[in-house]
């Protein structure tokens, strides 16, 4: 009993101290971004978020990128990963290696090799910031691969596919009507992670000279710290809501498996 109370006290101390350590900057961001003139409070910094056309453009660009990158990721990853489990187990190791490779190559190194590549990309596709879709799809590969792999491992893909095939379904039907609905939650998880990662990405965008959200926030901070801090707080909270929602998506899958 004595050790149990000791454990509870220790736990409370850890949670309080580290909770304070992590909440203090959040509070400071709220305080800083609501400063007015002469020690008054004002929401000017927050109001300016929507009034800066460059910032609004950058936010829209980043939102578009988060969608295009998630879609491209799903389109190239899901059919390949399902197909490899069904027909090409020989490629399993190679695909896993390639998908996890970005973990060993820091983004700052990848961008060194991408700079000359993007000279070509911009020649063929124009110099829209949306061309970052290619780079971002590479960045999200490790996270997306793990999420989708976990989803595919949880279902009996071979049996499901054989059943559908024996009933005359084409491979496309198998993919869209059997595989996708069965790993729906894993796909949502992979997409949410990609969205959060793209919205927070700075390294590649800034060094390839594209105006995304984080690049603008950084630029803006040089002349108006209040607005940058307000947007930063918003980014952190938005990412938190995404990941918090994700924790419930995962849970629902576990529940339905139990029900079945």
């Amino acid at each position: 009993m004595g050790s149990l109370t000791k454990r509870r006290v220790l736990r409370t101390i850890i949670l309080l101290v580290l909770g304070f350590y992590f909440l203090l900057p959040l509070f400071a961001m709220g305080e800083f971004s609501t400063r007015g003139v002469n020690d008054t409070r004002s929401l000017d910094s927050w109001a300016q978020i929507t009034q800066d056309p460059d910032l609004v453009d950058a936010i829209i660009t980043s939102l578009e990128l988060s969608i295009t990158s998630s879609v491209l990721m799903l389109v190239i990853l899901v059919p390949t990963m399902a197909w490899i489990r069904l027909r090409l187990p020989k490629l399993q190791r190679l695909v896993e290696f390639l998908c996890l490779l970005p973990l060993a190559i820091p983004a700052i190194v990848l961008v060194v090799g991408m700079a000359p590549l993007y000279a070509w990309v911009n020649y063929f596709f124009g110099d829209s910031a949306l061309t970052l879709t290619f780079a971002y799809t590479v960045l999200v590969l490790p996270f997306a691969y793990r999420a989708i792999d976990a989803g595919l491992s949880a279902i009996d893909l071979k049996t499901l596919a054989e059943a559908a095939r024996s009933l005359g379904a084409s491979w496309l039907t198998v993919l869209l009507k059997v595989v996708v609905p069965n790993i729906r939650t894993a796909l949502i998880g992979a997409a949410l992670l990609s969205v959060a990662l793209v919205l927070g990405e700075f390294t590649i965008a800034s060094l390839l000279n594209f105006d995304t959200l984080q690049v603008q926030v950084n630029l803006l901070g040089k002349r108006n710290a209040g607005v940058s801090i307000a947007v930063s707080l918003l980014c952190l909270l938005f990412a938190f809501v995404l990941l918090f929602a994700l924790s419930y998506v995962g849970q629902r899958r576990r529940q339905t498996v139990v029900e079945e």
């Binding site: 919205l199 984080q214 930063s232 952190l236």
Partner: peptide
């Protein structure tokens, strides 16, 4: 959020603190 997506916002959190 902090481990994977902090980046630039984290820097501004520090400037604010």
């Amino acid at each position: 959020v902090l481990a994977q997506f902090g980046g630039v916002p984290l820097a501004f959190a520090f400037l604010a603190t």
